[in-house]
Amino acid sequence: MLPTNIRPFVPRGRPSIRSLPQNRSQLFRTDASKRKAPPLAFVFDIDGVLIRGPHVLPEAKKALKMLEGDNPFRTTIPYILLTNGGGVGEEERSKSLSHKLGVHIDTSQYLQAHTILKKHAQRFADEPILVLGGKRDVVRRVAESYGYKRVYTTLDVLAWNPSVWPFHQITEAEKASTKTADFEKTPISAVFVFHDPRNWALDVQTVCDLVQSGGIVGGPWVPLEKQTKPVELIFCNPDLLWRSDFPTPRIGQGAFKEAFQAVYKALTGNRYPHVQYGKPTEATYNFAKETLGAIFRERYGASSTPEHLYMVGDNPESDIAGANGARWNSVLVKTGVYDPEQGPPAHAPTRIANDVLEAVEWAIEREFSKNPKHH
């Protein structure tokens, strides 16, 4: 049973949004400064909401086209995509998703778990950093596109000294992706876990070496309280589970974090201090709101801001918990991680919907019924 404050979406007595005629040709013939801002904006998770694995979910295209103007209120409604995924550049990912969904998604609308790391690029621009996750050196190139100049991977470390982790023999393809460095003379200032690591054993070993020595692979271990400049450790995605096209959820970067911390605690007796980004963290939701604010100012004028934000997600622990913490409206869909047969969600959303189209219909109808001046 659902919590008493949550009811499935039931269309109102007037014609549904799906059944009304659409005509995009008359949309926005005035310039941007004269456009009236809609009373709401959307933030969508991707996996389990718009797509599942490589496949587009059936109602996703209709939902996004509705926001592009195919709605009875004759207005576009701004939205961004906020995912705990990543591993490649935002431009590449937005182009791929635009092709799949049949709508143009601008790079500025696509926030991955690690997009927020652009904010740190100036501070670490000239310092050696280690990046984890993704295939070969792809996340290195993402970090460099953000402005980081001295970026290394654990494959670089393994190529430098194979005895760092003797249980993995580096392949020719992996070796071709490496950058040469002497890690005994290259103190690493920070470790950024951009995306889900591919070789947990190598990565846990390398990070343990770095944080116990103050940044030198193979350096003497020094208690954390005696280190003059401890290595900063930043995780971008706290998700323990995520939904792919496999029948049951898969473990994610949050599981890698727990594995690393368990090993580090077994070695030292403590967990290593770290910074966490990604949903449901406050920093990530603030970053998403700032991004939507910039879109509103560009489209509707300098003083425009989104009045009501709607988060549509499939994971109560990340999407819904984060939205509730940020005091946004939240809609939980049944097409991803959340399984209603396992009981009510751990974090109660504003609404539960069958799919993303039902979520969008409900939110639009709810806000525009309260704001008839926008009709």
Rank of each mutant, 00 (worst) to 15 (best):
P344D: 07
T154H: 10
L357Y: 11
K149N: 07
E298L: 07
T76C: 04
Y148F: 15
G89S: 14
V191A: 14
G69A: 04
L240A: 11
N329V: 01
T30S: 02
N286L: 09
E90T: 11
T284W: 06
Q227H: 06
K226I: 05
I116H: 02
L81E: 13
G48F: 14
G86K: 09
N5L: 03
F44Y: 11
E307F: 06
V275P: 00
T115H: 02
E184W: 00
N354V: 11
F296E: 04
R250E: 03
D106T: 05
F235M: 14
Q169L: 10
E172S: 15
G336P: 10
P21N: 08
Q261M: 13
K265M: 13
K95V: 05
F28E: 01
L155Q: 03
R29C: 07
A353G: 10
A353P: 05
G13W: 06
R327V: 11
G134P: 01
S108A: 11
A32T: 08
Y79G: 04
G322I: 09
N161K: 10
T281A: 04
Y310E: 02
L158D: 03
D47Q: 10
A359D: 11
G336T: 03
S98K: 00
Q26R: 03
K257H: 06
V337S: 01
A363E: 01
R351L: 12
D203F: 00
P238M: 07
S163E: 06
T180L: 03
F183I: 14
Y277G: 14
L101D: 06
A190K: 06
I188G: 02
I352M: 12
V331K: 01
E144R: 12
H375T: 14
H114W: 03
A323L: 05
P249D: 11
R299L: 12
D314F: 04
P162W: 02
N5W: 01
R351D: 02
T107V: 08
V164P: 10
V263W: 05
K229D: 07
I51Y: 15
V56R: 13
K229T: 12
V217S: 04
P220D: 05
I352N: 01
V217H: 03
I51E: 15
K149F: 05
K373P: 01
V204D: 06
E184Y: 03
K289M: 06
D209Y: 08
V10G: 02
S94T: 10
R74W: 11
I216P: 06
M66I: 04
R123P: 00
L309H: 13
V131Q: 00
A125L: 08
A266L: 13
A348N: 09
F124L: 15
P21R: 07
K149E: 06
N324S: 15
P3G: 04
T284R: 07
Q276W: 05
G89V: 01
E127T: 11
L357F: 15
D70L: 14
R140C: 01
V193K: 15
M311G: 05
P247C: 08
E144V: 02
F246W: 12
P3I: 00
V191H: 02
H99L: 13
A159S: 15
A143P: 00
W200Q: 08
D209T: 04
D31E: 11
T228C: 07
P8A: 05
R198E: 07
G313V: 13
T83P: 13
Q169P: 00
K36Q: 13
S98E: 01
P349M: 09
F28S: 04
V275F: 05
R136I: 00
N324T: 15
H374D: 03
N329H: 13
P72K: 14
L309C: 08
E225H: 15
